[in-house]
Each structure stands twice: as C-alpha cells, then as structure tokens.
Design a protein around this nucleic acid. Structure first.
Lengths: 194, 194
DNA sequence: AAAGAGATGGAACAAACGGGTCGGATATTC
DNA sequence: GAATATCCGACCCGTTTGTTCCATCTCTTT
C-alpha cells in the first residue's frame, strides 16, 4: 500500500534510464522487468501499459529538468551568470533528453499529445524565468533592454532554435561553437555598454 | 568494381555508428539501409548477412582503437605521460565500445568466437606496448621496477579489472574516482622515490 | 541500339519478438 | 487460515525483421 507508490517510483527511475538510452520503441518491457529483477507481468501490477510508464517517465524527467534548471540559477548570483548557467544546463539536459524526442518522432506521434501539454506548460514557465532574469538584470543596471517580456521571448526563441539541430541532425557538429555564438550574441546585445 | 570496396567501407562506418549506440540486437537492417539512403535489400549485394556486417564493424573498431591508442602514446614524450594517456584513452574508448559488448553478451554468444580472436590478439599487442613503456621508463630512470614483463602484466590485469564495472554495471558510478585511484596506485608503486 | 554485367529496391515470407492477458502460486496481513 | 497483496510462467497474436526473389534500372561494351 504505502510502498506501492515507492515501487512505481523505482520502476520509473529504472525505465527512465533505459528509455533515455534506447528510446521508447527499442525499449522492451522484458528489459525493464529484468533490470528490476522482476517478472515481466509483475510490472503490469503497477502500470497498465508501456505507454503509461513512458508518460510517467516523461513527467518525471520534466520535473528533474525543472529542478536542475532552478538549481543552476540559484548556484550563482549575478544575472549574466544566472543566464549563462541556465542556458548551459538547458543545452546539456536537452541533449540528454533527445532520445525521448527521437522516440516520439519515430512514428505515430498522434498518441503523444500529453507531451505537448507538458511542453507548453514548460514553455510558459521558462518564459517567466527568463523574464525575471532579464528584469532583475535590468534593474541592477547590468542589462539594458527596452522590454523584459519581449526580450525574454526573443531569447527563448533562440534557445528553441538550438534544439532543432540537437534533435534532428545525426552528427553532433559544432554544437558548442553554436552555443558560444548564441551566448555572445545574447550578451553583446544585452549587456550595458560602458 | 573499384568502388564496391569503398561502398562496403561506407556501410561499415554507418553501421558502426548505429551498432555502437544500440548494440547488435536492437539495430535493424532497415535502419542501416535508411541511414545509407538505400533499399534494405541492396545491402545484401555487399554483405551476406547482418552478422557479417557486425564482424566487419568489430574488426574496423578494433583497428580504430589501435590507431587511437598508438596516437595517444605518440602525443607525449615522457613514459609516465605516455602511460597516463594510454590508460585514459583506453578507458574512454572501451566505454564507447561497451555497447558492442552488451550486444555480444546479450544472448547466443556462441556465434561470436571471432571476437575472442580479436581480443586475444589485442591482449598480446597491449602487453607488448605496456612492456615497452615500462622498460623505457625504467631505462630512463623515471620508473623503477624489477621486471618489465611482469609489471606490464600486472598493469594489464588492473586495466582489465576496470572493464568489468564498465560493461556489467548499470549505474556509471565512481568510474572517474576509480580511474584516478588506479593511476595513483600504478604511479606510486612505479615511480622512482627520491 | 543490343547485350549484358553491375547495382537497386519493392514485395513477400518465415521466424522471432514483444506487449499484454490469465490463472494460479507465493508472500503478507489480519 | 482466510483474505488480500504481490509476483510470475505460460500463452496469445499482431507486428517486426532478416533474408530472398525478381523485376527494373544504369551504364559500359560491342
């Protein structure tokens, strides 16, 4: 009763590890159960289907992502450092998550409208974070922008733009260069000239 | 005629990329052919079976490994640096190769005696490299050991010991700590005290 | 342009795989 | 020892996948 929820969590963590490596399609229930040292059918006592596990995993990963991003921001104090940290961690984490995306875009993406939900909620949250960062930096006089809201949206657009090659290209070419370039662009366009 | 061999090489490189990510079992012929932008059946004009491709890939990777290891040694001059470089690169490359191993140990390992051949040949080569490294270091007075041969064997044993958690454990715990510890051990047991 | 070798891919197939079900075994709780 | 919670072996059946066959296509060579 009590530890049923705990066991669900354990399944989620284990499945997450395997999903993130092989994607949804290539991960089998047999593998998950073997990793848990349980019979395949036992898993169905905790979850109704493979997809349900996947949903739970995606939700779990989304929360992890949120945790890490907020941690990255709290780690440093100045707004530019916060922003840089945020972008770095975001890149790193999204790269790790790319297997989920590949899994989703493999085929039949119709079944995964729940991801869109998570996604759009995350978008709103991210925008709020960016807006706050820009706003505070502006107040402290280290940034100098007209409108925090629209600047935050512009930054988010760039970040989203960086996801595309991350999720669609095979060869991981120049990701770091690209990251540096975008950071330079953001900061040179945002930092107060003196 | 001429470029048939070239095309085989291209298939090997492409298949290698996919195999190294998903292992033998989870990699499908369809994936390989799609990555090559060819029909699935066309591949069979160049290779007789999936296993034959896999064999070619393993051979190819073994050669790559050799190349990188010798390069790592040539990169620096002093024997301790050479040894450290060698071990670092060995670790890194073996970690990358772990998927091949997982593929092999998945099931039916009986079919893969050709890997044992490659492996034992590689063992002999590695021992020769280590022996030479220790020997030269000894001559230059930076190492101080009784017998190069047996010292080299001891080092090789340690390195092999490090493969075990790499290939069998799920969570990649403390690999770097372990590496550092082993490096310290080797050097403190080997460096000339002054 | 005919012939023929080199190369390609669509379609079909048998075998294996894999998600999910079911009935019962085993453990735990009361 | 009944009741309940948890686990699993065996099975089902639609799908996947390695491989083959054969019709086509491309490009020399004659």
């Amino acid at each position: 009763m009590v530890d049923k929820e705990e066991y669900r969590a354990r399944i989620i963590r284990t499945a997450s590890r395997i999903f993130s490596h092989y994607g949804f399609r290539k991960t089998t229930m047999d593998e998950i159960s073997r990793a848990l040292k349980k019979g395949k059918s036992s898993i169905y006592y905790y979850f109704d289907s493979k997809e349900e596990i996947f949903e739970a995993v995606v939700l779990y990963e989304a929360n992890q992502l949120r945790r890490r991003l907020t941690a990255a921001i709290k780690e440093v104090d100045s707004p530019p450092d916060k922003l840089r940290n945020y972008i770095y961690v975001r890149m790193r984490e999204f790269a790790k998550l790319s297997n989920y995306y590949n899994a989703v875009f493999d085929k039949n993406l119709d079944h995964y409208e729940f991801i869109e939900k998570i996604r759009s909620r995350y978008d709103r949250e991210e925008l709020a974070i960016l807006r706050l960062l820009v706003y505070v930096g502006n107040n402290r006089g280290v940034f100098e922008v007209e409108d925090s809201e629209y600047t935050a949206m512009a930054i988010q657009t760039m970040l989203k733009g960086m996801e595309v090659p991350l999720f669609w290209r095979k060869r991981e070419i120049d990701i770091n260069d690209r990251l540096e370039a975008i950071l330079r662009l953001i900061f040179n366009g945002i930092m107060k000239k003196q």
